[in-house]
Write a protein that binds this DNA or RNA. Structure first.
Lengths: 102, 102
DNA sequence: CCATCATATTGATGGATGTCAATACATCGA
DNA sequence: TCGATGTATTGACATCCATCAATATGATGG
């Protein structure tokens, strides 16, 4: 996954495209179910998709949808292990976001 | 504005209410126009609502709506000076967000 | 008070998003 | 190859969100 986009918010005014890029990553984070998934995975070090419907009380398709949004945003990494999909948090990505916000 | 919500994502699993709270603040940030407003204000130190429609190519009601979302989320502070509304960035709030994400 | 200007609110509309049931796809063990 | 199981996709629906025109509210100077 390539670098996110831009210098800190207070360093230069965001271009339109940088604002779009950063907004798309923040939008991926800005949902309670997705935040909970990220925190579950961050705490355990990794997490299997098979456990998330129970842990979040959401259907399997809904979880699959949220996970793919997080992967697309570069916040989670996905690894296939046999039948199961395992996820880890991309800490570099979160640090990139923080580097822009603060 | 009270403290945001919770320990870092990787320290404990988010409760449902903490996830809602954090998501609401991130949602306020997760829009290109609002990010641009924040960066304009952060760079200038402050900003007048009267300038934003031109700077962002959005209508006055749209800007007003975005600004109130940022104020409600605690990301901007509003100050009335005569007829004009001036805004500053609440850096503490952004740092709270970063402290949770990283 | 009144006229004027800056900002907020209302109402309407098109578009995006979250959700689940049904179904398709992929992987493994037998 | 076949059945079983985990995950992704499709389709449908309800809800939320961004936007602007019109209007209301609020503040200032005369």
């Amino acid at each position: 996954m390539e670098r996110l986009c831009c210098p800190p918010l207070g360093a230069t005014t965001l271009t339109d495209t940088d604002a779009e890029t950063l907004a798309s990553v923040l939008k991926a984070l800005a949902h309670p179910v997705r935040l909970k998934l990220v925190s579950i995975i961050a705490n355990a070090g990794e997490g299997c998709a098979c456990d998330f419907p129970q842990l979040t009380d959401k259907s399997q398709p809904t979880i699959s949808h949220h996970l793919s949004q997080l992967v697309n945003a570069g916040i989670l990494d996905r690894e296939q292990r046999g039948k199961w999909a395992w996820f880890t948090v991309n800490k570099d990505r979160l640090e990139e976001v923080c580097a822009i916000l603060c």
